[in-house]
Structures are given as C-alpha cells and as structure tokens.
Design a protein around this nucleic acid. Structure first.
Lengths: 155, 155
DNA sequence: GGAGAATTGTTATGTAACGTAACTAATACG
DNA sequence: CGTATTAGTTACGTTACATAACAATTCTCC
C-alpha cells in the first residue's frame, strides 16, 4: 500500500475539499466550450436571475470582494454577454443585465452544468441528495456564524 | 430583497463550494496559532501517519503535483517539524518523518481541527453526518472516474 | 555492462482566485 | 455647504495550484 490519510479522513472539511476539487476541474471542463469558468458562469447566472443588480450586491451574493468582480464583468461584457448601464437614479452605480446572447449562452451552460451535477450525484437516492443539500447549507451557516465572532463588535 | 442565487442553489457543486470556503477561512484561522495552514497541516498529518513516505507518494495522496510539495516541505522542515533523510535504498528519494516537535504540534493541531470540525457539524445528528460523509466520498469518486475519460487511453 | 528510458526531487515560471489599500466620482446628511 | 459614505476601480500581494525543463540516480535490457 502506498500510504494513507486516515487522520484527515476523519474530518468533513477534508472530504469537502476533495469533493470540491474533484468537481471544480470537472465543471471548468464543462464550461470551457462556452468560454466560461466557474466564476464567470456564476456571475452570469446570478445576473440573469436578477436583472438590474448592482455590482456590490453581486459581490455580496457570490461572497467575493468588489474588486474581484471588475475583471469578471469586464470579461463578460467584452464577450457581449452582459451590459453595464449607469443607473439613472444613482450615477455612481451600474445596473447589470444579460444580453440576448448572454441569456442564450447562460441557458445552454446551465443545462450542461445541470447534467454535470447529475453525474456527480450518481449513486445517491433522492433522500441522500436531500440530506446532502441540507448538510451543506448547515455547514455554510455554521461557518458564517463563527465569522461574526471576529467582526464588528460596537463601533 | 437584495438579490438571489436561485439557479445556482440548485447545484450541489455550488453548495459544496460555499461550504468549503466557509470552512477554509475558518480552519486556517484555527491553524494559524500553530504556524500552520491547511496544506502544511495536511502534509504534516499524512507524514505522521506514514513515516518514511516519499514526496511523490505524499503528492499523490494530497492530489497535488510534486513541485508544489517542495515549498511546503521546506517550510515544515525549516520549522523543525519534519525531516527529509535520503533513502539508503534509493539515493534519489527522501524519506519523510515528523520530528518529536512535529508530532507534538501535529497532535495539538489535530485536536484543534477536530474541535473546529465538530462545530461545523453542529445541528446534525449522527445519521446525517454519516450520510454526508458517504455522499462526499461518492462525489469524489464520481469526479475522479470522469477524469479518466480524458486521460491516458493506450500508450 | 553500458546506453537509453524512467523516476526523484528541484527550479523556474505561469495562472486563477482570492484579499487589502487607496483612489475617483457621486451621493447623503447634518 | 462640507464632511462622511458609497460604487466602482486600480494597483498590488498571497495562496494554491499547474507545466516544462533539468540533474542525479536507478532501471531495463540487449
């Protein structure tokens, strides 16, 4: 035998990391034909769900900092998938919308991702999938709530 | 309401990404007091479980490429947690072992990580945890097996 | 037993996905 | 009005990866 990771296997964190990196490379391969990556696809999908969204809001939803969005949106805009139009009620902000081209690409990509997702879930029955879903949500919440401990106390 | 990610929420991949990044920052904070990061801790723990391991094998276990290990091991060795000793049966290779100091640190860090892991699982009963565990393994396998499709066919 | 192939660790280098600090333009607010 | 805040941006740094090329060593096999 070549060696084992028995200690680490005890941790969910380790399992999640492995599952995630397995998915990640795979999903990027799925999106490559569309000229998209995980991040650009995510942004595209969220904008499609929320026309008129501001960049700050998008950053909040995706849990990334605003500066990181700039390049992502530049890329999407450069590919004519998204437009930034100045908001007329607040000329600092942009309203984000997907173009027709963006909508079509997004829908096709969403199909592909859905198919990919289904493949990752092969071998699980409906109840297992549901449990997995809930468990992930729970972990996300458990993580975020421990964030607060280190944040603003009373300014 | 500020905007939603309903499309993405349908995908396990998205849930895993979120759960993972929630864990990641948190676990790095847990390890920081020990002077470790996720990667260095993982390497340390695996070496502790497999004294005499070669770097190539460690890379395989951790699913990273050999060059990336070099810096990680430099760091661990520089902190006197690990030693590289030339293997006498193959003078190209190193045998990796944790030092006494490394063993102690590893054990304390493992405790801390275990506590952290437990916090992430709060709100789940035993059966839910077990299901989560299995589900993650399954996803990992589903991902890896689709790797093969793109790899060596018949050299 | 010696030449070419393979393997171990390494160096150099590139990239993607983040984060922080500091700036500009615009708005809000007392 | 003037000061603080906010939206997007620029510049820059870090971490976690990957690939290519290389020296030293070992393997293979004729």
């Amino acid at each position: 035998m070549t060696g084992s990771d028995r200690t680490l296997r005890g941790f969910v964190g380790y399992g999640i990391k492995r599952a995630f990196s397995a998915i990640q490379s795979d999903v990027n391969a799925t999106l490559a034909p569309f000229g998209l990556r995980m991040l650009t696809y995510s942004a595209l999908a969220v904008i499609r769900d929320n026309p008129g969204l501001r960049q700050t809001q998008l950053a909040e939803i995706l849990l990334i900092e605003r500066p990181n969005l700039v390049l992502i949106l530049d890329e999407l805009e450069g590919a004519d998938l998204v437009v930034r139009t100045r908001a007329r009620d607040d000329r600092r902000a942009y309203e984000l919308k997907v173009t027709l081209k963006g909508r079509r690409l997004c829908d096709r990509a969403t199909e592909a991702v859905a198919a990919h997702d289904a493949r990752m879930l092969e071998g699980m029955d409906e109840s297992m999938r549901e449990t997995l879903h809930q468990a992930l949500r729970l972990i996300e919440m458990n993580g975020r709530s421990s964030d607060d401990r280190g944040k603003v106390s009373r300014p």
